[in-house]
């Protein structure tokens, strides 16, 4: 009988092995994940909160056609990575919040869904190449609609900046401290129901950070966690406001579902990464505090 932590460690090792193999086979000739992801990750150096080159690259084109091309290009590169990491991430989040049993169940569902959605994604991409313009306009409409929708939670810029620091620092413990901090910025704590579940949500995001930081290739994906946490926090807070019970199992399911929505969808991940980098720049640019 394994305890939760041992199971999580085993999962992480398993993921690491699998992932290392993937990296060697598929990305042997590529440094990191290619230029697109580097663009997304190229924002600020953590130590001095100093902005680096490439600032403002997306400022004007954020909502334009060029931005969608960047999202698409990044999504294409992210796809094979996400196929491997998403089910693991769902399992880790589920286990950290709801216990190992909940994590395993959620992971199985995630794997099943990922097989189904993979086909959909492939067909979407095929049609995209057939009629790119048509696809872009359809996608642009959906994309803008999602962004304009007030019901979808977006984390604040400071949380994005802290997540960026968590993805860049060398020390695992320091990364976890930043993770705890951005989670606390995001998750509402006013209701008793949320207070009960709060430490488990912190544990969930911490476990997710740990998993994504395991490989340099997945490390930039840490920047997607504030979005996952914000959406999960919003859903749980809404349920709490309706007087519904928030059990650890409920919280695990909601958080795992949001993890799946972001990491299980290359377009959503790419869009989140680019938006996160832009938001983080807003915070880090003016602040140049030095000792």
């Amino acid at each position: 009988m394994l305890d939760g932590e041992t199971m999580q460690q085993e999962l992480e090792y398993e993921f690491e092995d699998e992932y290392e193999g993937l990296f060697e086979d598929e990305y042997e000739s590529e440094d990191f994940m290619g230029d697109s992801l580097r663009e997304a990750g190229r924002v600020t150096s953590m130590a001095g909160m100093t902005s680096m080159a490439g600032e403002g690259e997306y400022e004007d084109e954020y909502e334009g056609e060029a931005f969608f091309k960047k999202v698409k290009s990044l999504a294409r590169r992210l796809k094979p990575v996400l196929q491997k990491v998403a089910p693991k991430a769902v399992q880790v989040v589920g286990s950290a919040i709801g216990g190992a049993g909940v994590g395993n169940t959620l992971s199985n569902i995630a794997k099943q869904l990922s097989r189904e959605s993979e086909f959909e994604y492939e067909s979407t991409f095929e049609s995209e190449f057939e009629d790119e313009f048509e696809y872009e306009s359809t996608f642009a409409g959906e994309f803008e609609e999602e962004f304009e929708s007030a019901t979808i939670a977006q984390p604040e810029a400071l949380a994005e900046a802290l997540a960026m620091m968590a993805s860049q620092v060398q020390s695992e413990a320091e990364a976890e401290a930043y993770t705890g901090a951005f989670t606390a910025r995001i998750i509402p704590v006013k209701s008793l129901a949320m207070q009960r579940i709060y430490p488990r949500l912190v544990r969930g995001t911490a476990a997710l950070t740990q998993t994504l930081r395991k490989s340099p290739t997945t490390r930039p994906l840490v920047k997607t966690i504030p979005t996952i946490a914000a959406r999960a926090g919003q859903k749980l807070a809404r349920q709490a406001a309706q007087g519904k019970s928030i059990t650890p199992t409920t919280a695990a399911r909601v958080m795992a579902a949001e993890t799946k929505k972001v990491l299980g969808n290359p377009m959503a991940s790419a869009q989140t990464l680019l938006r996160s980098s832009k938001a983080a720049r807003k915070v880090t640019q003016p602040q140049r505090s030095r000792l």
């Binding site: 695992e172 413990a173 320091e174 976890e176 401290a177 930043y178 993770t179 705890g180 901090a181 989670t183 606390a184 910025r185 704590v189 430490p199 912190v202 544990r203 995001t205 911490a206 950070t209 740990q210």
Partner: peptide, 13 residues
Amino acid sequence: AEAEAFLGALVPL
């Protein structure tokens, strides 16, 4: 690492 996550969360609060 888990302890650090909890402690990091203290600061925004």
